[in-house]
């Protein structure tokens, strides 16, 4: 069986598990939605990592998505999820363009820290502008309709799950297409040799800005989905620990392709879910150990484990 076929079977199996498991175990429905939604955000981190850049502030776009739906509920009224799924990512994109114009001039640690700084500004505003945001308490998000249809809480869990799963498939396909395209390869070329890229007549900043805006879009989309699933938006959405979590998941899962984001998110959220139930505050310890093991033994992440086995298999005559 070819490696490619095995990869596809694994992905197909994962999709089936995500779709079927929550029917057997209803308590998994929301957890699975969260895993998938965070995976979408992590896809954005993976895009930036292609260029060798790590953003330690990407949760700000996650926050923008979440607060889009929260502010709408508070200041406009009830809304439809389809509208939010369009509006949240688009507003996040607009933020991404504005902030991106600054940050794409920097690389590596400066890029990472400047993103962190912008996210801290956003977090502070969400915390301090109490009159608008309720501060640290956050804003409750009412269950939206979907295409005009109102669902019961039980049904909505599943509606959101399958909608999210569908979005994951569309978005993963889109991101993989992008990474294989000229723009995606030029993004990787920034990491490879920015001087040569400029000497091919390409503006590395422009290429990075495109990646940054796409990645902000994904952050916003994830934010809308998570705020909808948890029925609340709080400043925590934009806090730096959340940004760190997304980077953590990206490294855990592996940055070589889209599948890594979801593998990483699945392990991260599952460990957190069970470990926090069993061990109260020790889940960070467990995840820390998991990450150390990953970095030491599988530097290309969970997905890299399979690719490495494949590479070894190809070497054999």
């Amino acid at each position: 069986m070819s490696g490619r076929l095995v990869s596809r079977l694994i992905i197909a199996a994962a999709i089936v598990v995500a779709a079927v498991l929550p029917i057997i175990l209803p308590s998994w429905a929301t957890l699975t939605t969260l895993i998938l939604a965070k995976g979408i955000v992590v896809l954005g981190i993976i895009i930036l990592l292609q260029a060798g850049q790590v953003s330690f502030g990407h949760a700000m776009f996650f926050g923008v998505g979440a607060y889009t739906i929260a502010f709408w509920g508070r200041y406009v009224g009830p809304g439809d999820l389809l509208l939010f799924l369009l509006l949240g990512p688009l507003i996040a994109m607009a933020f991404g363009l504005l902030i991106g114009l600054f940050v794409v001039r920097y690389r590596e640690i400066f890029f990472g820290m400047l993103n962190l700084a912008f996210s801290m500004v956003m977090w502070s505003l969400l915390e301090k502008l109490y009159a608008f945001t309720n501060g640290a308490d956050g804003i409750r998000v009412a269950r939206p309709t979907l295409a005009g249809i109102a669902f019961t809480p039980e049904a909505f869990q599943y509606v959101l799950l399958y909608l999210t799963l569908g979005l994951v498939l569309v978005v993963s396909y889109g991101v993989q297409r992008y990474l294989d395209s000229p723009l995606g390869h030029m993004l990787r070329a920034i990491k490879g040799n920015e001087t040569r890229l400029e000497y091919l007549g390409v503006s590395a900043r422009k290429i990075l800005l495109i990646g940054y805006v796409i990645s902000a879009f994904l952050g916003g989309l994830g934010g809308v989905l998570v705020a909808t699933a948890q029925q609340i938006a709080t400043p925590e959405f934009a806090y730096w620990t959340k940004s760190g979590e997304f980077v953590f998941i990206a490294i855990l899962g592996g940055i070589a392709n889209a599948a890594g984001a979801f593998a990483g998110a699945a392990v991260f959220e599952t460990v957190r879910f069970f470990a926090s139930a069993q061990l109260a505050n020790a889940w960070q310890l467990i995840l820390g150990v998991v990450l150390i093991v990953i970095i030491m033994f599988a530097p290309n992440g969970l997905i890299g484990l399979r690719n490495r086995r494949k590479a070894q298999a190809e070497v054999r005559p």
Binding site: R177, Y178, D180, S181, P182, G184, H185, M186, I210
Partner: peptide, 9 residues
């Protein structure tokens, strides 16, 4: 100037 995001390189 083929700066597409969808076509395969």
């Amino acid at each position: 100037g083929s700066m597409s995001a969808f076509r395969h390189l």
